[in-house]
Design a protein around this nucleic acid. Structure first.
Length: 493
RNA sequence: GGCGGCAUAGCCAAGUGGCUAAGGCAGCGGUCUGCAAAACCGUUAUUCCCCGGUUCAAGUCCGGGUGCCGCCUCCA
């Protein structure tokens, strides 16, 4: 089956055809480095991480470019507030961004260019636009002239009259048209600046993406992505700049991820509901956050709340419980001596066929515009099938069993590699989850363990009343016990 | 005011013309267990916001209505 992508430019799902057979160039707008990353950044990062991971498992050679805006008004503001150089701000937040992304299991893009390191390219590009009559300089500022670029508005589906009628664009006497946007901004006294043919200044926001995508991916590349808020004006402006300069399409497919809402409200500074990634990760395992986001389609809005993360946690625990059972079953088996290989029974063939079928369906879901929600449905079906298998395996010859378990493991590895989950050893996951939950609830491990020991002693003397009393006591702390032949394990719910 | 999106069970969420409307969470009944937990089996939407229409056939297409949301200003 072929890859399909919903293209914002046409508002349709299209069959993906890369410019170069077997290779994909993708550019995603990264962060402006002036504050720590929040859930919204995390979603965009995870969405495109999965896109790139999946395309790679499909055999594409992917060049993934994600930029850092490291010079911008907000960065300068912050630097002024703290009384430090702007580079100190941008470097600090780039570093924190990288830590957050690593924690989320987001793979590092192929190239992560910074705006300040591409001044020459930007200035050259502005020069071309000026020469071709698409840009004009007023008093040290350079603006892109919308009226000279007839296709303006193509991506967002707006026309000039409508936008002017919208009349919410800022008033600036220097601009010929209120929708014209800055390519180059004259610097004020004391502001960071770079020399240019138009005098000292710094680049406008949009030009960096045009310059850097061109440098690393060429004049036309396959996929351009970002958050849906970037459609207008950022991506519209990028298209105008790049296409006016080259006369060629900028990108063939435009992908935009939906927003993260917080308890059904828009996340915004004024509402004070910004959730930084690092705060969330103190309370939840990173894969929980990933799973939560991947359970919705990437273009839909997703509503972040404590309860939805708690639900995602239960779902992930379901998966890791099975992964752990699978691991134990395999370990137990490898300790046994392998008898001679037998033919598969009809029942065993049935398992193998079903696993194969689920793996195919998983890929088909991702082929269809990266439908991770549907793909996860198949992951959970695989969990159930694996549980069935583990319950059934007693009747199977060891060698056949080993083969089927290995097939199941391989499928989970594939799911995990694409979605960036199941990347922990199962026991490790439960350990880490337990630590997080204990910290969150301020519970003490020693106390719990000591109660469990007392209960164990009571059980040995068959003092069920006492054992149950302790179980009840722990249940009040949301601790659920699981008894096995000779010990008791526990988990926090 | 302009442009766009969404509305599916108690909650979250796939499905965009055709077999029994995925999956997760929560709940209930059962198997297992000293009791539990996990797992498994069964169960929880005669119906997809409302009203019309197209069609042999609609959650899925078209028209109208209602409600919610996003963008148009920096924003993932």
């Amino acid at each position: 089956m072929s890859q399909k992508i919903f293209n914002t430019a046409t508002r349709k799902k299209e069959v993906f055809k890369p410019l170069k057979e077997g290779a994909v160039g993708i550019y995603v707008c990264g962060i402006t480095a002036y504050d720590v990353c929040h859930v919204g950044h995390a979603r965009a990062a995870v969405v495109f991480d999965v896109v790139v991971r999946y395309l790679r498992t499909r055999g594409y050679q992917v060049t993934y470019v994600k930029n850092f805006t490291d010079i911008d008004d907000k960065i300068i503001d912050r630097a002024n507030k703290e009384g430090v150089n702007f580079t100190e701000i941008s470097e600090r937040y780039i570093k924190l961004h990288n830590e957050d992304m690593a924690a989320l299991g987001v793979q590092t893009p192929t190239v992560t260019p910074k705006a300040t390191e591409h001044m020459e390219e930007m200035i050259a590009l502005i020069g071309v636009l000026e020469k071709k009559g698409y840009a004009y300089c007023v008093d040290g500022d350079v603006y892109f002239s919308i009226s000279n670029y007839k296709q303006y508005g193509g991506l967002s589906g707006r026309n000039l009259e409508e936008m002017i009628a919208g009349a919410r664009v800022d008033v600036n006497d220097k601009k010929k048209n209120p929708l014209d946007f800055a390519l180059w901004k004259k610097s004020k006294e004391g502001e960071p600046s770079w020399g240019s043919p138009w005098g000292k200044g710094r680049p406008g926001w949009h030009i960096e993406c045009s310059a850097m995508s061109r440098r690393y991916l060429g004049e036309t590349f396959d996929i351009h992505g970002g958050g849906e808020d970037l459609i207008f004006p950022h991506h519209e402006n990028e298209i105008a700049q790049s296409q006016a300069a080259t006369g060629k399409p900028l990108a063939n497919y435009w992908m935009h991820n939906g927003f993260v809402k917080i308890n059904s409200e828009k996340m915004s500074k004024s509402l004070g509901n910004i959730f930084p990634v690092r705060e969330i990760l103190k309370k939840y395992h990173p894969e929980i956050l990933r799973l939560f986001m991947l359970q919705s389609h990437y273009r839909s809005p997703v509503d972040y709340s404590e309860s939805s993360l708690a639900e995602a946690r239960s779902s992930l625990i379901r998966c890791y419980t099975t992964l752990r059972l699978l691991k134990y079953a395999q370990e137990k088996l490898s300790a046994d001596i392998m008898p001679i290989m037998k033919e598969f029974s009809a029942e065993e063939e049935n398992y193998i066929g079903k696993f194969k079928d689920l793996a195919d369906k998983f890929d088909a879901a991702l082929d269809d515009d990266f439908n991770t929600a549907q793909a996860l449905g198949h992951v959970f079906d695989t969990v159930r099938l694996t549980n069935n298998l583990i319950a059934d395996e007693k009747n199977m010859p060891a060698s056949n069993k080993a083969e089927i378990l290995a097939a199941a493991k391989k499928i989970f590895d594939h799911f995990g590699a694409v979605l960036g989950i199941f990347q922990n050893d199962a026991d490790q996951f439960f350990l880490s989850d337990k630590e997080t939950e204990l910290r969150k609830r301020g519970l003490n491990v020693e106390e719990i363990e000591s109660l469990i020991k007392k209960r164990q002693a009571a059980r040995e003397t068959k003092d069920w009343a006492r054992a149950d009393a302790i179980r009840k006591e722990l249940a009040r702390l949301h601790i659920v016990l699981k008894d096995s032949a000779n010990d008791t394990s526990w988990i926090i719910e």
